[in-house]
């Protein structure tokens, strides 16, 4: 081949030499590869829409069926919520987003197993972080679509709607939770030996974390020990603020959203805890990603 080698120092010359073609930069390369990888995930979704359909139908069924379970519970049993259905909405939003994000690692695991990941790893990616990035964009988009479906359905079932700012906060909370859980799931996808193990981890994590949160019942229903567990569960700090904005249009960062065994938790604290959850998740997966994607 007549193409010459491009040692690092000569790249500078190319840039100075202002050639007709726009010179790619590491950032434009990163954006190009991230968009292409994200596009692949959306093409897959478009050609196999059953997962999205199931992902929307399932939470709606939860909402209708589970919501009806406590239809005749005495008024005021579920705090400020008018009905159990209204109480449940926030729990279903968070649980759905959590479940989706937990599965984020599966496609990556299959890519590892089928050797498709090798195709990505032999390519001169600007940064292999684009592989993680593409998954995060994909899962976040899906979760926001699911959330919108649940919000609309809840409104139809008579749970009302938060105001615009409240809806934005719901979106932000879903985003924060999904990013952290997606990070953990992708970390597992690179750490575990195969999809069987990953599915096992998803199984033992999913429902227990739901039950050990305030998604289905308020803290006051639980024995002391479970209250402690539920207030250690990051899901609770996503659920309670969403529940609060559903009931109070006049919320602010100082609003107390839940009474934990160790004191009152405000909206601001909840958001900080979710932010902290993200920091911990991303730090935790660093070594795992480095090992494979360094």
């Amino acid at each position: 081949m007549s193409r010459t080698i491009t040692p690092p120092q000569s790249e500078f010359k190319d840039q100075v030499g202002a050639i007709a073609l726009p010179k790619s930069t590491p950032l434009s390369d990163f954006i190009q590869e991230t968009l292409a990888l994200t596009r692949r995930l959306f093409i897959q979704l478009q050609r196999r829409p059953s997962t999205l359909a199931a992902g929307i139908i399932q939470p709606l069924m939860w909402l209708v069926l589970f919501g009806a379970l406590f239809q005749n519970a005495p008024q005021g049993l579920f705090g400020d919520s008018a009905s159990y259905g209204q109480f449940l909405g926030a729990g279903i939003i968070v649980f759905t987003a959590f479940g989706g994000a937990l599965n984020a690692g599966l496609p990556v695991m299959f890519d590892r197993e089928f050797g498709f990941l090798n195709r990505l790893l032999v390519a001169p990616l600007a940064s292999r972080f684009s592989i993680v990035m593409a998954s995060a964009i994909f899962i976040t988009t899906l979760s926001l679509i699911q959330t919108a479906a649940i919000v609309v359905m809840s409104a139809f079932l008579g749970s009302g709607l938060p105001n615009a700012l409240g809806l934005a906060l719901v979106g932000l909370i879903v985003l924060m939770l999904v990013l952290a859980v997606t990070a953990l799931s992708l970390g597992l996808a690179f750490a575990l030996p195969g999809h069987i193990e990953l599915i096992a981890v998803i199984f033992v994590t999913n429902l227990p974390l739901l039950f050990a949160s305030t998604a289905l019942v308020p803290l006051s229903f639980m024995p002391k020990w479970l209250q402690v567990v539920a207030t250690l569960n990051p899901l609770s700090y996503a659920i309670e603020p969403i529940r609060y904005v559903y009931l109070h249009s006049d919320w602010n960062l100082g609003s107390v959203v839940v009474q934990a065994p160790w004191g009152a938790v405000t909206m601001g604290t909840s958001l900080l805890i979710l932010l902290g959850f993200n920091v911990v998740a991303f730090l935790a997966i660093q070594p795992l990603l480095k090992r494979t994607l360094a």
Binding site: Q32, E33, A36, L37, R40, I43, R47, R119
Partner: peptide, 23 residues
């Protein structure tokens, strides 16, 4: 290792982006 859901052209488009061919 192909993505069986993608068409041949789509796979090559992905590949082109991964190697940063000028658009």
């Amino acid at each position: 290792a192909l993505d069986k859901v993608l068409t041949g052209r789509e796979l090559l488009e992905l590949q082109a982006a991964l190697y940063h061919l000028p658009r």
